[in-house]
């Protein structure tokens, strides 16, 4: 328990340091916030353009789709705020040997690697993603109960863990490759599926992206909770895949760690 508290204190100190740093480079912070906002707009624009030409995608109306996309953006903003920079830099650090620095720190290596930086620009766009979800819910005349909102928040948390696990597993491939250049693209490739309604996937695609990999359930389950109410089987699936994929990602990271033998830049 004391170890947990010690790591939590380290995380809070890292967040405090990152906040101070963000305020030191305010122009940079504003620019990155703008970048993220623009990318979010691109996703919303895609929904708008497609629904200019069609009424439904796999049975989902325009605002149901917007709710789904908003949920995905919400999870991704949280990932960007807490973990993206850390894991992205893991790839560079392993190649250059700077990773040694993390191994020498007095904490769990995976924890130290994952929490060193906190990106405020990712967090400032969380309200924008939330606004998209709320706007879509209002246009759908949804009136979720407090329990639904609480469980939705929990599912978004599970989504964050799943995105983290996906990214960690992919970036950990750097322990086997010479460079991480380009492999983070795998994360974006996989998470694109979280913007698809589950019903759009059939056959092999359904088996792979709904059941084998968690990329579709990560956003569909919370969005469906708001639209259709509680679906216990879906909630159980979400909880199960979250635990399973986090364990897989941690195992891949530690397998990679055993291969690591430092490097020179």
């Amino acid at each position: 328990m004391s170890a947990l508290l010690r790591h939590l204190r380290i995380w809070l100190a890292s967040i405090r340091y990152s906040l101070v740093r963000a305020m030191m480079f305010r122009g940079d912070f504003l620019m990155w916030a703008l970048v993220e906002l623009f990318w979010m707009s691109v996703n919303v624009l895609l929904v708008g353009v497609i629904y200019d030409h069609t009424d439904s995608i796999a049975g989902w109306s325009k605002y149901e789709m917007l709710l789904l996309v908003g949920t995905t953006l919400l999870v991704q903003r949280l990932l960007m705020a807490f973990f993206w920079s850390n894991l992205f830099e893991l790839g560079r650090n392993v190649r250059s040997g700077t990773f040694d620095f993390f191994l020498a720190q007095p904490g769990w290596p995976l924890f130290m690697v994952s929490t060193r930086k906190f990106d405020l620009d990712g967090l400032v766009n969380v309200p924008v993603a939330l606004a998209i979800v709320i706007y879509a819910a209002q246009r759908l005349h949804l009136d979720p109960s407090a329990a639904q909102i609480l469980v939705y928040a929990g599912l978004v948390g599970c989504g964050l863990i799943l995105h983290y696990a996906t990214l960690l597993a992919i970036i950990s491939l750097v322990f086997w490759l010479q460079s991480a250049k380009g492999i983070e693209g795998g994360y974006f490739g996989l998470t694109e599926f979280s913007r698809l309604p589950r019903e759009a996937l059939r056959g092999v695609a359904q088996v792979v992206f709904v059941y084998a990999l968690p990329v579709v359930v990560v956003s569909n389950v919370p969005a469906r909770l708001l639209i259709h109410g509680f679906e216990p089987a879906m909630l159980a699936l979400m909880a199960g895949v979250t635990v399973f994929w986090l364990a897989v990602a941690i195992a891949v990271f530690h397998a990679g760690l055993r291969r690591y033998s430092s490097a020179s830049s």
Binding site: L173, G182, G185, G186, G189, E192, F193, L196, A200
Partner: peptide, 19 residues
Amino acid sequence: NFAIRATFSLLHLVYIFIL
């Protein structure tokens, strides 16, 4: 890395085909 990136891009193609 390029080969992996190209293979990952197939995922994007699958997404496009489904959407």
